[in-house]
Amino acid sequence: MRVTCPWCGERDRREFTVQGDETALRRPHRDAPPEDWHAYIHLRDNPAGRLREMWYHDPCGTWIVVERDTVTHAVHGTTPAREAAR
């Protein structure tokens, strides 16, 4: 797999750390009910197909949202997490 870092261009998978589902961008408010926190931490759609997930590019220190197909491993687009979170 090769992934395009918005700043550094197309790079080898070895340069990245994968955190998984982009749920990290949807952190509940601290007063949210426990069910919301449970869903945030544990529950996943876990699709067989396109998934948006958090990748960290180690050399430049950027969090990236990668849209990737979990069946073919094809990468369909990357956005800096800062923009995706807006």
Partner: peptide, 18 residues
């Protein structure tokens, strides 16, 4: 490995990643 898809048929969302 297919638990999430089959459980979704019953409207369940599981604490599983494949």
């Amino acid at each position: 490995g297919r638990s999430s898809q089959v459980a979704a048929m019953a409207g369940l969302r599981l604490p599983i990643e494949s």
